[in-house]
Structure formats: structure tokens, C-alpha cells
Design a protein around this nucleic acid. Structure first.
Ligand code: ZN
Ligand code: ZN
Ligand code: ZN
Ligand code: ZN
Lengths: 155, 155
DNA sequence: ACTTGAACCTCTAGCTACTATAGGTTTTAT
DNA sequence: ATAAAACCTATAGTAGCTAGAGGTTCAAGT
């Protein structure tokens, strides 16, 4: 098995991951270096495909690269050593839980912003003010209802 | 009026905006260049302070720099020309509305991820599986309930 | 007047996760 | 044999800052 080889373009189609992104993942050593043809083109096998799917799905679920890297290592470790799945599961769950918390904090923060924005916009639409509420609120946080606490964020 | 001058550190304390960030805003021509002392240090006036407050508040509310730039220009334009506030308000509201939509899309996307993550984690906690559900789901999107549609995003 | 230390200055590089472009080579099909 | 499609590397750009190095200026105290 593992006899079928894929070009980078085929891998891209199978996973939905763009070609430059695949090369990028190789560059940061997330995806192992594939063998090359004599001419220097990459040829992937089924294992690469599986790994890339894992990576892409992790990214789609919003996991940072760092987390995906650790999850891949856990996976590798388990396959290598046949260690009890318990520890790996524990750590994987922990990583997922941290990610869940980040997301929940982010949702809370964005919900606050959403409410604030709705209020400004509605105040303008109702048109009782001679000046734009959007501009006024931007100029003066006192007019805000919430504090839009800045969670450190990305994605 | 406008006689009181502030150092960049004082401006920083007044707004909560970090010193390098203030210099960064100047570099991208968002905040106008302040006059300098003979020795080359920046000295700001009340107008700079007001502008920086506007910028920082806009950022706290999640507006991209590009939007803030346009909002500042609207503000400037109105003060210069005493044009009817109507048009400015209309455009400002439009910008705010676009931002609101971005945020709502983002909240929707994150809510999907949150649900997905909760499901994986719970499946692991219930412990009926001999394998880690977090790992399994990552390896196979088929096990997902949602499609985690990737809205283009930032912040 | 002189010294000290905090605050200031510029410049460059780094962060996340890609994406785009330029300019060239390999593969595959006709 | 030729030509198009797909591949290659390398570099720079995206957003919005932040950190560091290495040097200068300012204001206060003696
Ligand atoms: Zn308005
Ligand atoms: Zn506010
Ligand atoms: Zn688990
Ligand atoms: Zn999925």
C-alpha cells in the first residue's frame, strides 16, 4: 500500500487547501517533506494526504498552527509507542478546551461590539439627533454602554 | 486655546494607546504629524488628543484602520465645509453597518465552531469511546455536524 | 552648572497565517 | 517536437501592531 503518488495540485484538490499553502505548511515543518521527482517536483503519498487533511480541518476549526502541531505530535507519538490513548486524549481535550474558551471569550467580546454598533446605528436612523450618533460615540467612549474589553485575539 | 502641549507619553496615558502605537499611527498618516521640540521630540495639542481618542475608540470597537481613516476624513470634511451633516451621517452609518455585518457573520461562524468543539469534548468526557473524539473528528470532517464556512476574517 | 535617570528618538525585525507576483523549469499530451 | 499546464524558488506584501537595539533629549535635583 501507499503506492499511489499525488502531485501537489492533486493534493490541493483533494483537501481544498491551496497549493502555496501546502508548500507553506512544508516550510514551517508542519507537513513532512515529500520525496521529489528527478526534476524536483513533489510527490505525495496517502500518509501525506491524511496529515494534510488533519491540518486543514484543524485550521477550519480555528485551531492555531501551534495547537495543530502539538496535536499532530500526539498522534504520532501514539502510533509510534502504542502508549495508552488516555494521556493523549487528555492532552488533546485540554487543547480543544483552551480553544473553546478562546472562542467563547471572542464571542462575548463581539456580542458586546455588536450591541454597541446596533445602538449607534439605530440612534441615527431614528433621526432625532441633529448630529450623527456613530460619529459622536466614536469621539466619546462615555456614550458607550459596554466596555469592549480587548481580549487578545486573532482569527 | 490649544495652548497646552503633551508629550507622547502623556498622550499615551490619556488615551490608553501605547507609545509605539501612536508613532505607528503617525507613520501610516492616520494621526497628523505633531510639531517637534528643537531636540526632535513630539509635542501634541488638544486636537491631536481628540483625534487619537477617536482612532483608539474606533479600534476598540473593532473598526479596521481603513474605515477609521474614512470616518476621520468625513469628520474633517464636515468641519471644513460645514456641509449638511446628512451625507456624512449617511456614509458613517453605512460604514458602521458594514462593520456590524462583518461582526455578525463572525459571531455566527464562531458559534458554529463553539458547538462543534463542545461536541467533541463532551464525547471524550462521556468516555464511551476507546479513542479520542477530538483526534477522530480532526482527522475526519465527516464526523462534523456543521460546515464551519470560512468567512474572510481578521481581528 | 552639572549630573543623572526617565523618557524620548529612529530603525529594523518579528508576530499569524497566509497570498501574490516574478521569472524560470518540468511534465504531459498532442 | 512543441506547446500548454502545472510545477519550482524566492521575495514581498497583507493587518495591526510590538519588541529590541542603540543612541539622544529633557527635567529635576544637587
Ligand atoms: Zn449617523
Ligand atoms: Zn466605547
Ligand atoms: Zn479526547
Ligand atoms: Zn469539520
Amino acid at each position: 500500500m501507499d503506492l499511489q503518488l499525488f502531485t501537489i495540485g492533486q493534493l490541493s484538490k483533494q483537501t481544498g487547501c491551496k497549493v502555496p499553502t501546502i508548500r507553506y505548511y512544508e516550510g514551517i515543518e508542519l507537513l513532512p517533506n515529500p520525496p521529489r521527482t528527478e526534476g524536483g517536483q513533489r510527490r505525495y503519498n496517502a500518509h501525506h494526504l491524511q496529515t494534510l487533511r488533519f491540518i486543514c480541518h484543524g485550521r477550519e476549526l480555528g485551531f492555531p498552527i501551534k495547537a495543530i502541531r502539538e496535536l499532530l505530535e500526539l498522534d504520532q507519538f501514539q502510533q509510534d509507542s502504542r502508549a495508552s490513548t488516555e494521556d493523549g486524549c487528555h492532552r488533546a481535550d485540554q487543547i480543544a478546551l483552551e480553544h473553546l474558551h478562546r472562542i467563547e471569550r471572542k464571542i462575548d467580546q463581539l456580542s458586546g461590539l455588536r450591541d454597541e454598533l446596533k445602538m449607534m446605528i439605530n440612534a441615527c436612523k431614528s433621526g432625532d439627533n441633529h448630529s450623527c450618533q456613530v460619529m459622536s460615540v466614536l469621539a466619546d467612549h462615555q456614550l458607550c454602554q459596554h466596555s469592549h474589553g480587548a481580549a487578545d485575539d486573532n482569527e
